[in-house]
Simulated scan of single mutants.
Amino acid sequence: MDTNTNQKDELAVVEYVRDLKGFYSHLTNYLVVIIILFLINLLTDSSYIWAIWPALGWGIGVLNHAAHVYEWFNWFNERWEKKQIEKRLGRRL
């Protein structure tokens, strides 16, 4: 393996770890804020659970972030990018 390949691999791993860190931070913020909202909701007026709405809305964002980081739907991966670049250049890379 040459050093250029090693550097690319290292950069890819560093980027992934940063994405993972960002997701964990997002998830932690979500959990803390949603727990606080539910506590406020239950302590002030437990007849209507309104805290479910921000939990669902923000939860969709957290799931989207997880799908991106863990590549659950890998439609726009490196292979797709390379194919698009080759198509626009009119030649193979």
Rank of each mutant, 00 (worst) to 15 (best):
H26F: 00
Q7R: 10
L39Q: 11
I49V: 14
F23Q: 05
L20M: 06
L42N: 10
N74P: 09
M1Q: 10
L27I: 00
R88K: 15
L31A: 08
E71A: 13
N29H: 13
A51Q: 10
D19W: 06
R91W: 06
L63A: 09
V32H: 03
L93G: 00
E15C: 10
Q7G: 00
R18M: 06
A55P: 03
F73V: 12
R91P: 01
G59L: 01
L42H: 07
F38I: 06
L27D: 04
E15L: 14
K8D: 12
L43Y: 11
V62A: 01
D45G: 05
E71D: 11
A66R: 12
N6S: 14
F73W: 09
E15G: 10
L39V: 12
W75A: 07
I36P: 07
R92E: 09
T28C: 02
L31Y: 00
F73A: 06
I34T: 15
Q84H: 03
L89H: 08
R92K: 15
F76W: 15
K83R: 13
I35T: 13
K21T: 10
K83G: 04
A12Q: 13
V62Y: 01
K82Y: 12
K82R: 15
E15P: 03
H68V: 08
K82W: 10
S25I: 14
F76I: 11
Q7H: 03
E10F: 15
Y24D: 05
Y70N: 06
Q7L: 12
N77F: 04
F73N: 11
I49Y: 10
